[in-house]
Write a protein that binds this DNA or RNA. Sequence first.
DNA 1: AGAGTAGCCTGTAAGC
DNA 2: TGCTTACAGGCTACTC
Length: 294
Amino acid sequence: MPELPEVETLARDLRATVVGRKVTKASVSPDAPRLVQEMPVEVFEAGLRGRRIEGVSRRGKYLMLALDKGMWWVLHRRMSGNVLLRPVKAPDEPYIRARFRLDDGNELRFVDLRKFGTMWLTDDPAPILAKLGPEPLDEAFTGDVLRETLKKRTTAIKAVLLDQAAIAGVGNLYADEALHYAGIHPKRPAKSLTKAEVGHLHEGIVRALEQGLANLGSSVGNAAGEEVSLRDHVNLNGESGKNQEYLVAYGREGRPCRTCGTAIERMKLAQRSAHFCPQCQPLRRRRKRAAKRG
DNA sequence: AGAGTAGCCTGTAAGC
DNA sequence: TGCTTACAGGCTACTC
């Protein structure tokens, strides 16, 4: 699913391909009535027409395209949203919810099986992004910053990692990965983490996200060998990422922990599946020696 | 105010 | 075999 590494990969691909291009036509499918936010679809389509893309950035899981005339095109992929860059004449993929013709013979296609994706056209993106917490890959995001956030929270650490107001851009997959790297059980109350554990978690978050980014994202739901698979994240050219091959926790239920060989377990937490190693990520501190009985 | 959860959405897979 | 149900999950809106 698109989290920080997947959205950042998309932002980088777009920066290399569509900056300087002009949108000559925008059309949103009538079967995606929730795609455009806060304005009628016709206003959105007319507002994008003729706009030049001047820059591409990312905040949390939001993709931001800076347009001329001070406008911003903001996009959130949610669960199954993908952006593809294709020649106008290329055959359609299934589930195209909107298309944006460019002035070079290509078009951007927003493909979204589950229709959770959202877009805005605005002269001020700040309200859309207002609740987001710090960017985990910024230098300003330190172990101390994370410790300040966690010390007030009584809920499970994994629920906090999923809270975009606590840390922007971490979702279910990278939260499981970060907790595994840190050796922390997903159910541990956030405020119960020691200073050392918060340090390990900080390192785990950065490590999980940077590895995902280096591998151009995780594509866990796509059928192997399918050229353009649309059940999960694909990049601008339609290819899957590679990070699913390197995951240590997410989606590995029943398979051996890469550290100790114990079977990875799955549990329900905060209405999400949480994957963890019961040996490397114990809920309670293990006794140093087995208790003697009798 | 923090915590917990229904609902949005559709294809796949498990269960009867 | 064919139908029903559960599941995947980012985020908002809602309740307690």
